[in-house]
């Protein structure tokens, strides 16, 4: 806990002690910690002299913020219009099946987390999946299986 608190104190900087910096502050915390913990949000509320309900209300309003620790490799299935028409939903179901988690969830070993995104802007490659910073174009359920097995060989699991 101690290290975490000192971490935040470098983000909670006095030039920005104004409610208008709430969203930017939350973005910075998330980009470093990977998510917004309740402790972090309480600390931000205290620092900006706002109620914790207001901070929570703003944080949960925006799609960007997550409240559970992310996996090491975030899996994002694009469900923009072009990807939807090209079968993105089937791809999403395949990823969820292969990783055995639901949308918004994280695998037990914290290796992957899964979310949908509404268009990453490469519609010519639809349907698209990103894993970490890698882009996987023109996905299909069988291709999903291949990719996941390659990244996450069943042998790696200690059963």
């Amino acid at each position: 806990m101690n290290t975490k608190e000192s971490d935040l104190s470098s983000i909670l900087n006095h030039n920005r002690r104004h409610p208008r910096y709430l969203i930017a502050t939350l973005q910075e915390i998330q980009s470093r910690e990977g998510y917004l913990s309740s402790e972090a949000m309480l600390e931000v509320a205290g620092f900006l002299d706002m109620s914790s309900a207001t901070v929570w209300g703003v944080a949960t309003f925006y799609n960007q913020f997550r409240f559970t620790p992310p996996g090491k490799r975030p899996v994002r299935v694009c469900l923009g219009t072009a990807c939807h028409l090209a079968g993105g939903q089937l791809v999403m179901e395949a990823v969820a099946r292969e990783l055995k988690i639901e949308v918004g969830g994280t695998t037990e070993d914290r290796e992957f987390d899964l979310d949908r995104v509404a268009c990453i802007g490469c519609c010519a490659l639809a349907p698209v999946v990103t894993i970490g910073t890698d882009v996987y174009p023109k996905m299909t359920p069988p291709k999903v299986e291949e990719v996941i097995v390659e990244l996450n060989p069943p042998s790696a699991h200690k059963d």
């Binding site: 910096y21 939350l26 703003v58 309003f61 799609n63």
Partner: peptide
């Protein structure tokens, strides 16, 4: 921070002010 409604001008102003 990701909200489709922020494209509406008054909603965008609220977001810049740090609100919902």
């Amino acid at each position: 921070a990701g909200a489709f409604v922020s494209g509406e001008e008054t909603a965008m102003i609220a977001a810049i002010e740090g609100r919902r």
